[in-house]
Design a binder for these strands. Structure first.
Lengths: 193, 193
DNA sequence: GTCTATAGCCTGATAGAC
DNA sequence: GTCTATCAGGCTATAGAC
């Protein structure tokens, strides 16, 4: 996929590189699409693990979000073709099975959990505990990755001028969801409990 | 491309739908890649025109950026396959010719111009007149579009919960590039002219 | 679990008649 | 400018021997 594009994957070429004949592969995978599905599942799991591992030691809240997604971004640029299969769906005839999609739900839960922490510690306002905030964060992440991949095909996460902006972008979240009582000249509003 | 994916475009199918035989197409295009290049150029021009048309009547500065890129986003979701060819480069063996890439430079100039206006009118701080700010805006735009395309393949710009966040995202620019003198409790810094 | 053989498709591209 | 005919190759997938 790295060499021929995600859609360029072919069982014949896989067999060639394994040193076997194409029909042999059908003992392991019933179809080309099942190979995509296996790659999809493996990719989702690895990506999720990379994000989780980076989140765990970080300070809960915004720092954990930044650290986790930063690691996720690094993983994506280190596995570009796989990341494209996961997050841009370039193979028109491929629909991942529900099992392969499961880690993606865990990923959303991971972010949501840290948003709750950020609200609890006063880093963000209560509106940040929402699907909308998760969507906003996914825009920032996917946007950074998409621009890096399309415009800097040679550069890793550490060299990209787009990924360099990612901490700044996460730093804008408090402006989007201002903590109550932190806006000079305005009275705090919202629940008093 | 809409039906079979960007990489699924084939001259044989084009000929079939035109009601001609495949060799006839070679009188107009020397190769499949030259067809991609023609599509790329046409797409870039149409997209640029859509953005320009929406910018012109708007208030210069942030409003023009928001209006232009909003129209650009709408164009992209109305021409999804073409937009993918333009901005995500899914065809590994296709490299656009310099002529086909020219409108993209005009696009950058268009944004940069409005950033200058935004700085001049005090909507943004002087640091917004930079390649970095253009990159940041491109992240917000590509991120919104990418998430809308990947997760809401059926919805247009008007129905997308991602595109609904786009005005908010543009509204964060003043937080990223705060206008001088607008930060309570801090003294204005920078050039005094 | 690997192979040979093959069916049945598809593709981009060229030669040369009309 | 369109066609027929064709080259030369690719692919997924199956049948069935070993």
């Amino acid at each position: 996929m790295t060499e021929a594009g995600v859609t360029g994957l072919s069982l014949a070429e896989v067999a060639r590189r394994l040193g076997v004949q194409p029909p042999s592969l059908y003992k392991y995978f019933p179809s080309l699409m099942s190979v995509y599905d296996a790659l999809f599942l493996r990719g989702q799991r690895e990506h999720l693990q990379a994000v989780r591992d980076a989140m765990t030691p970080a300070e809960p809240g915004l720092d954990a979000i930044r650290a986790g997604l930063d690691a996720g971004g690094r993983w994506c640029l280190e596995h570009r073709a796989l990341a494209q299969l996961l997050f841009w769906r370039p193979v028109a005839s491929f629909e991942p099975t529900p099992e392969a999609l499961a880690p993606s739900n865990e990923m959303i839960a991971l972010i949501r959990d840290q948003l709750v922490r950020a609200v609890a510690t006063g880093q963000l306002g209560p509106a940040a505990d929402s699907d909308e905030a998760v969507a906003l964060i996914s825009i920032l992440t996917a946007g950074t990755l998409g621009q890096a991949m399309a415009n800097e095909p040679q550069l890793g996460w550490g060299e990209s001028r787009f990924s360099a902006l990612f901490p700044t972008l996460i730093g804008l979240l408090p402006a989007a969801y201002p903590p109550v009582g932190n806006i000079p000249g305005e009275e705090p509003t919202g629940s008093s409990s």
